[in-house]
């Protein structure tokens, strides 16, 4: 990405100029930055990429209208994807499965691990709701055959069924399965699979750019004192400590 290369180039320049730690004043720094050209369209695309990947469909729609930036994906599919994600987060796993299958039936048919995790989540929800009999029936009918096909699924299944053995599930060794984080984990797995099936990155680009910025600053710290950005949310330049 362009921002990354700009920082790298500056880094190389500085390396060439000085062997000892060089001090760069705010004026020099701002002057250098003002020489760097970044296209507005690139910025817009980055923002659109963030909105789309994170699933802010209304915002993406508005942003599209106001900035004229075309998203690289059909916005309607974002709504569908967010609905799936939300369904898992709320524990409506069956509903989520049906929605994924409507979106693209290939996803769960060709991704046994994801399918198993969704079924496992369904089992967890049944246990959470105290439907012991139904949970056992479901585990036996739907999950046991998957365990036969795959050893690691069997181990996960055993761990899940173990929930039924404890009176106080919140304090048992497998209690983490009932945690809300388990739902979030499953939800993000489905989300990533849907994005992959749409040839879309599963992570937005903006965080990676910021990671690159931090990394580049750390590299630069060894060579020079300069106005660095400490607070990413304000992106304020702080005066170099001399």
């Amino acid at each position: 990405m362009s921002l990354f290369w700009i920082v790298i180039r500056q880094l190389a320049e500085i390396e060439a100029m000085a062997t000892s730690k060089k001090v760069i004043t705010r004026e020099e720094w701002e002057k250098k930055l003002s020489d760097v050209k970044i296209a507005k369209e690139d910025m817009n695309r980055l923002v659109m990429n963030f909105l789309v990947t994170e699933g802010y469909v209304d915002a993406a729609e508005k942003f599209k209208n106001e900035s004229g930036t075309e998203p690289d994906i059909d916005l309607a599919t974002i709504t569908d994807r967010m609905a799936v994600k939300k369904a898992v987060q709320c524990g409506n796993v069956e509903d989520a499965i049906e929605k994924v299958n409507d979106l693209n039936p290939e996803i769960l048919d060709t991704n046994p691990q994801l399918f198993f995790h969704l079924q496992q989540q369904r089992l967890i929800e049944l246990i959470r709701n105290g439907k012991v009999e139904e949970a056992l029936e479901f585990a036996q009918e739907e999950l046991a055959p998957r365990g036969e096909e795959n050893q690691s699924f069997l181990e996960e299944l055993e761990r899940t069924v173990a929930l039924l053995a404890f009176e106080d599930v919140t304090n048992c060794p497998v209690g983490d399965l009932l945690d809300i984080s388990q739902r979030l984990k499953t939800a993000s797995e489905v989300n990533a699979a849907i994005l992959t099936s749409q040839s879309h990155e599963k992570d937005p680009k903006l965080p990676s750019l910021l990671k690159l910025l931090l990394w580049a600053q750390n590299q630069l710290d060894e060579k020079a004192a300069y106005p660095r950005i400490k607070d990413l949310s304000t992106a304020a330049l702080e005066d170099p400590a001399v």
Binding site: E98, D109, F115, E149
Partner: peptide
């Protein structure tokens, strides 16, 4: 739809 949702991902 019910048939489809039952068989997807499920060999058995």
């Amino acid at each position: 739809r019910d048939i489809k949702n039952q068989i997807i991902g499920n060999r058995t």
